[in-house]
């Protein structure tokens, strides 16, 4: 991922991440946490908005943005192979960038909206096809990530460690005797 950065130009992005735009693709670079996300198909705005969306869907304060960025990277990979998905994601983010106030509707990029407004917009589209696509990808991409799952107590593959027979399958200590 990081290798691609040198071939592209950097521009300033949101508070936490710098964004590089080269043609239709983008790189989200986080210098503080030293990771970068590059997308080939999704635009910078869409990629960043999806990252914000994924965090709103399944927020955990102790998880850095890089885990959410991996979800966006997975979605970009899908978009690359399937233009219908690319279109769905771009259009979905466009929809989230609509702000509806009474009978007035205006445009404000989803990633630049206040957190409260972002939640309102997510609730507005809750359950639609785009929403469920991103939600499904977040569930799988975040909680299916072994490094993340381990932090929650799902310890993953165990056969290579000989199972749990000597590693605490029956070590519950707190049940009253």
């Amino acid at each position: 991922m990081t290798k691609k950065v040198s071939r592209r130009t950097f521009i300033q992005g949101s508070a936490t991440a710098g964004v590089v735009v080269a043609g239709s693709s983008s790189v989200i670079l986080n210098t503080k946490e030293s990771w970068a996300l590059s997308t080939e198909t999704l635009s910078a705005d869409t990629a960043q908005s999806l990252l914000v969306m994924a965090r709103h869907l399944y927020p955990h304060d102790f998880l850095g943005d890089q885990y959410y960025a991996e979800i966006v990277s997975g979605l970009d990979e899908q978009a690359k192979n399937d233009s219908a998905i690319a279109e769905k994601l771009e259009n979905g983010v466009k929809d989230l960038s609509k702000v509806i106030e009474g009978d007035r509707t205006y445009h404000l990029a989803f990633k630049d909206q206040s957190s409260g407004l972002q939640l309102e917009n997510l609730n507005r589209i809750d359950g639609d096809d785009f929403f469920e696509t991103v939600r499904g990808a977040t569930l799988n991409g975040l909680y299916g990530n072994p490094r993340v799952a381990a932090m929650f107590g799902f310890e993953g593959s165990s056969v290579e460690h000989g199972g749990y027979i000597n590693r605490g399958f029956d070590d519950i200590g707190w049940l009253p005797k």
Binding site: Y58, L139, N140, Y143, G144, V148, A149, F154
Partner: peptide, 20 residues
Amino acid sequence: GLAWYSGNVGGMSKDSPGKW
């Protein structure tokens, strides 16, 4: 596992505080 569980509780139980 965490992924199936986190999808299933929200998707299948009325006792869940929503899905997300």
